[in-house]
Design a protein around this nucleic acid. Structure first.
Lengths: 172, 172
DNA sequence: TGTACATCAGTGAACGCGCGTTCACTGATGTAC
DNA sequence: TGTACATCAGTGAACGCGCGTTCACTGATGTAC
């Protein structure tokens, strides 16, 4: 049960604490902090992908917003993990490929739902939109107080992007 | 000349180092780390707003993408400052109001350029889109290698959102 | 069944690091008379 | 013009903290014979 506590940010010692184990125990299983971080990120991406697939069975374009809602909800439910997964990473990081996979999941969905759209551009825009909403909510720039407020905002934002894809050429 | 160095993240000592001054010198001017952080953030928002206004004189909807490009370029040029400005903040943080001001700048521009659109929803979507693109590029999830690659990607993403606003109801 | 040994997850003390912060100080500049 | 004093930006030593990491260790479990 390797979990990141709600409030605190990632550190090797914080993970050990969260697991109820001494600060040095993780070294039995991981070479160093970076190896632990990568393993947590990979597991996190597995969960995120499962959430995205579960939340959305997009039969038409509007339901793509469900992807966005699931993405933002995941980020708000596990902020430390989300930051770990999608935070700064180097050139040859496993997280780079994992993030690419998420983008491709979105892209292939768009290809079946909106075959006439520029799937690559639209997938990038959709991902960036969800990503921006996730960070703005996580970082307290948009309110998360109201019941259903977050989901409504995400849906309304996706409404703007997605109705474009069917009706206009997304490349300016 | 209070600046944040390119690579390193914000800390009181890092700012002092960047200013070529001892670690304790900032206490002559700021009560504590948080006061320094707020002052830098406020100054940063002033610069960002100036960049946004300078980069874009939106006469029609497509040019709103210039806002997005300026936003992302600012983030990539001053990543530590950008993270400081738009990173986690509490309920009564000056940065909250400053961020709100940026949103309102975008919103009022939309109101004059696209009077028929849902300006509030569209401004939030546009901000989130630019914000997501900024973080995805900063954090190495989207390539920043190619000449003009970033600006092209931002324009193409904004194309998708903005052409919607003129042609369809952005609320799903 | 019992004895000897290997394996292996976890422990606690210790290290060096950068951090925020305090403290008493120095040295330059400005002001009063 | 010179002397006495206040102001104030900056200094360097020192503190306690959480971090990543090392080290020698303990104690439980499994395996060989």
């Amino acid at each position: 049960m390797k979990m990141l506590e709600q409030g605190e940010s990632f550190s090797l010692r914080a993970v050990a604490r969260g697991a109820g184990v001494s600060a040095t125990a993780p070294y039995r299983h991981f070479a160093d902090r970076e190896a632990l971080e990568s393993a947590l990120a990979v597991e996190g991406f597995r969960e995120l992908k499962a959430d995205l697939i579960a939340a959305s069975r997009p039969s038409h374009a509007a339901e793509l917003a469900d992807f966005g809602v699931a993405y933002v909800v995941f980020a708000l439910r596990r902020p430390a993990l989300f930051r770990l997964m999608l935070g700064p990473c180097g050139e040859h990081d496993v997280r780079r490929q994992a993030a690419e996979d998420v983008l491709e999941l979105l892209e292939s969905t768009i290809r079946t739902v909106l075959p006439e759209a520029d799937a690559e551009a639209l997938a990038t825009a959709g991902w960036a939109l969800a990503h921006g909403l996730a960070f703005l909510h996580m970082d307290g720039k948009l309110s998360t107080a109201g019941q259903g407020e977050v989901a409504d905002r995400v849906r309304s934002a996706f409404g703007a992007i997605m109705s474009a894809a069917g009706s206009a050429d997304p490349t300016a």
